[in-house]
Design a binder for these strands. Structure first.
Lengths: 129, 129
DNA sequence: CGTAGGCTACTACATCTGTCGGAGGGTTGC
DNA sequence: GCAACCCTCCGACAGATGTAGTAGCCTACG
């Protein structure tokens, strides 16, 4: 069951982030989305990433019209979990508790966050009883 | 006061982790520590990392005896914050709240963790009032 | 002293990553 | 039908990373 850890370079993550937002898209559409986000890449640069990412299985493509349409095969959530997991393992010796505490201290949460959190805590608390 | 983001490769992080545990050490001592942790590196490999890391300012060295003694110049906590920050920015659009929730859900916390958490929440709650 | 063993310096080299440029093939508007 | 585009393929190239080997210098032991 343990999916292998994702192999995602920083630039590839940028591409994925754009794709998660815009959905299935052609290279040009991804490029445009990236350009809007301040990345100043050449068309072929994005194309290269797409190709490499397809080899890695991070995206899938099918040619339905003029151009290939790419879609991400890994979800944002998958990447989130993956990153959190390595962070906890590598820097907190696998102990999530301390990490949560640090997160809470170093980042500012708004009232809603705190409420949601409180609710979740209560649930956890029940279950742990 | 925004320190620049750390430039730390995975292998360099492994080295740092060992160094945080054993404190100031020679290349050989670091190698030994790493070997114990399952890394099967050659002496010169570690030496290379040390040299590169010194250039990057991640460690500092001084020759006090036979061999150079290296010490980390970045703390574990610094790296933790750094990683958390990019994780929140890159995968949660800067919103720490949702990340905390996911962390809580996906990792299992023990009773003590929950208690500490509850306490912190209460404090935050007060402050936010 | 000479030799074995530890230390650093230098060099090397395959990969991976970030960035394209150009060639070659369809499409299309004039 | 041709110039202007868009698309994909292939190749390239520099810099970062992982991983060492080798050579030369010291030193400590026998």
């Amino acid at each position: 069951m343990g999916k292998k850890p994702l192999d995602l370079s920083p630039a590839e993550l940028d591409v994925l982030r754009a794709m998660w937002d815009i959905g299935p898209a052609t290279v040009r559409q991804v490029l445009d989305a990236l350009t809007e986000r301040g990345k100043d890449w050449a068309y072929t640069t994005v194309l290269t990433f797409m190709t490499r990412m397809e080899q890695k299985g991070l995206v899938r493509s099918d040619k339905t019209g003029m151009a290939y349409v790419y879609r991400a095969t890994v979800t944002r959530n998958r990447v989130r979990k993956d990153r959190i997991k390595s962070l906890v393992e590598e820097l907190y010796d696998g102990a999530a508790g301390p990490m949560v505490l640090q997160l809470l201290k170093s980042q500012q949460l708004n009232r809603d966050d705190i409420e949601a959190l409180q609710k979740l805590i209560d649930e956890l608390d029940d279950k742990a009883s």
